[in-house]
Design a protein around this nucleic acid. Sequence first.
RNA 1: GGCCCGGUAGGCAAAUUGGCAAAGCCGCCGCACUCAAAAUGCGGUGUCUGUGGGUUCGAGUCCCACCCGGGCUACCA
Length: 950
Amino acid sequence: MSQMQTGTTTPPADDAPYRYTAEVAGQIEQRWQDRWEHEGTFDAPNPSGPLAEPGTELPERKFFVMDMFPYPSGRGLHVGHPLGYIATDVFGRYRRMLGDNVLHALAYDAFGLPAEHYAVQTGQHPRKTTEENIATMRRQLRRLGLAHDNRRTFATIDPGYVRWTQWIFLQIFESWYDDEQGRARPIAELVSEFESGARPVPGGASWASLSDVERRGIVDDHRLAYVSESPVNWCPGLGTVLANEEVTADGRSERGNFPVFKRNLRQWMMRITSYADRLIDDLDRIDWPDKVKTMQRNWIGRSTGANVRFTTEAGELEVFTTRPDTLFGATFMVVAPEHPLVDALTPAAWPAATKDAWTGGHATPHDAVAAYRAQAAAKTEVERQTEGRDKTGVFTGSFAVNPVNGAHIPVFVADYVLMGYGTGAIMAVPGQDERDWEFAERFDLPIIRTVQPSDGFDGEAFTGDGPAINSANDEISLDGLGVTEAKAAIIAWLESKGAGEGTVTYRLRDWLFSRQRYWGEPFPVVYDENDQPIAIPDHLLPVELPEVPDYTPRTYPPDAADTMPEPPLARVPEWVDVELDLGDGPKRYRRDTNTMPNWAGSCWYELRYLDPTNTERLVDPEVEQYWMGPRADGDAGGVDLYIGGVEHAVLHLLYSRFWHKVLFDLGHVSSEEPFHKLFNQGYIQAYAYVDARGVYVPADQVVEHDDGYTFQGEPVTREYGKMGKSLKNMVTPDEMYRDYGADTFRVYEMSMGPLDLSRPWETRAVVGSLRFLQRVWRNIVSEQSGEVVVGAAPADTKTLRALHRTIDAVRTDMEAMRFNTAIARMIELNNHLTKLDTVPREVAEALVLMLAPIAPHISEELWSRLGHAESLVREPFPSADPAYLVDETVTCVVQVAGKVRDRLEVPPSIADDELRELALASEAVQRSLDGRPVRTVVVRAPKLVNVVPG
RNA sequence: GGCCCGGUAGGCAAAUUGGCAAAGCCGCCGCACUCAAAAUGCGGUGUCUGUGGGUUCGAGUCCCACCCGGGCUACCA
């Protein structure tokens, strides 16, 4: 609220010249940061290569901890950003004190739209602004004292990194998915199989009879990265196409919230759908929050069911259904407006049986269907959403034959069936499907129940389980079978008749991988005179971005659906047209003017931390094996701990799993998953204040009163949300360093609550963490003289008990990443020490070591003043002596009818019987019983007795 | 509409997973220090777990219904 700074910036009090103040903290912190950097304290040795330390033994136990790396946006950090970085740092430091070889570093995700926007705003090249932003961020984060191995940092825009991003792209390009073996294989092996005849050539021709161009066309169709002309998400407002994952449910761009339109465009795609099953199944092998696993499963959307073919006058109409057991209840069919068979299904005149409601008031099926399709095409995704679920549609004029009973059922066109899912056509079973029920009611279509609803069911469509009814023909009867058995039975029957087969459908689509932007990785391919892509040879990587006169993308009014993307790279003809010798002499080629999406760089960065300077290989196999390889049978391997926000649940985390699996298939990595354990941290949110006009006012100048809030005397209302410039409620780490010091800031962020919860920032509460560190300091260093004041005498038993109980609790809390309760326990111990005349050295040292992961600078300083020359970062974390964990006596609670009536001091080893007698003998118990008989006595020795009166 | 979290003193939170509710931090009150204030220290302060029912000797914890807040998803056949 009206946060006049808490005064910690004032000079030390005269009577306490050696007090731990923000200023003192700042000096200590920067001194230790310099020393850590100078000594390479956090360098983690590799088993081999340039980062190995020959002659020293590599610790068997390793711990690879990672943050979701930052995007250096230029807007600067606020106090919410470092939360995850502090948490990984605390945990990494803790593991290091347990003896692990800890790998922790931080790189920068630096390609992408925001950098481009920022560059446009400031009129500078994105590389310049991006590098400046990274420098600023490095400075702000260094001041936090993060225990990073600085040899392993990089940015995704570094040419040495881009080279490998492009190399991986080419690996994917040069691969195909072998469905029989269930893995990616080099494309050369596919060609050999075509050549030898081991694999039939699509189209039936012999490989030898095909022209070079034809062969390449066939091979290109198998690649995991392929160029395809298909409907894509075109966003005129951003001037680029987007992946499905980047489009929100209401058809707008996730970034910028612009409308998105479907356009047929020639674009790079990645065959992620080949990995759909493994991406779902391997979720069971990794330690991720259920929420994220569920989101990925839903996004991939695996449905098992059957494809069933109905005959029509226009040929076979194939549908996908998850409920083939309800086939006898199919009373009509629906195809999507975009379905290719619609024209053929539309005859010249309405058949005799046509009901008025089906025609939409049109004289001929052609008119009706044409009008409906035009209407559907004109609707944007947004409109289709906002118009609710009122079913619309029109009869095509054709009938289809239900393969199970020969029934002629009408075929409708309706936009509640989507071309992009299944086959774009459905059999409608109103008895067991709510959407079909609504449509049937609207269009006066028959409804047949084929599953017996449960007793008391009074709804419409019954989607639950139950015995099949009305489901028999001359050859098969499903009647009486449950849903699962009925499905199996009918699928077998359909397969025997050739009318369908069991199948699996996915919601996941292939990943649209090109963007019409400047600030991204160029594609390492060129096109020849046949317009077929050719990989750039390895020695020419990386393909670097050319200088362009104008890197601003061509954008359009957000709703200009009919525009075309115009990539900035297309404006540099001298770069696009290039002469290269790719093996058959110098020839002219055309470069790809698209760039890769922002996700490319984050798809493999975990590997670069391992071997950041390698120019020969993606990653040294021995190094990858050590840090990420599986450690037991069935272990998928991967980063030991990955902390980040939940917002990447289906974007970055799905894409990077896909790339990692391709690299695994091709033998470049031994781990099958990139991230073994994932943890989602919560967000730090903040209050914001709006005045009467609805304008945000600076939150730090708002004054709190008993009955509300005012800004410059005017009342304002409080809101709660993200921290940021637009809400005028930003608090920066730099302010925290200045007013409290980095250690206090770290303690505060870790003590606010459990890591996975979002919580409100409250600057005025930060002082509590400073006071704690001041009290720790004062228990060890005199504020008057600056001398160390701990005593050599051994601690008394009570203090030792407090110490070892604290150690025990802190270890448990640290393991579970409950840093907030670990801090609370240390505060308790410290408060106990405050009451002693002299703090025993053994206790002081243990406390300093326990505090070190959370407040490393003050701990190093105190450790050093306590006489240790070496840094404490590899000192063993204190261990609790079990002898001090058991009390001499425990307090036993004695209840009568569940209410506490007495307390007894008893030995912890007391027997049930003895305790029962003691409890019944209690005066308070007898008084409370008041003569009532005792029905039973529940004894939980040694802590509780409950006397239950009769 | 569906699914998933969460609701504990004025605020943030803890509770060994069914056993003394409220550790710790902020705030608030008082005192000390001070000419005064800030800072700091010391002491004090908080009535019962969103609501209603159930299971149990015993429920913040388990079950059911409802209310409130947040997230994800939304014609996926």
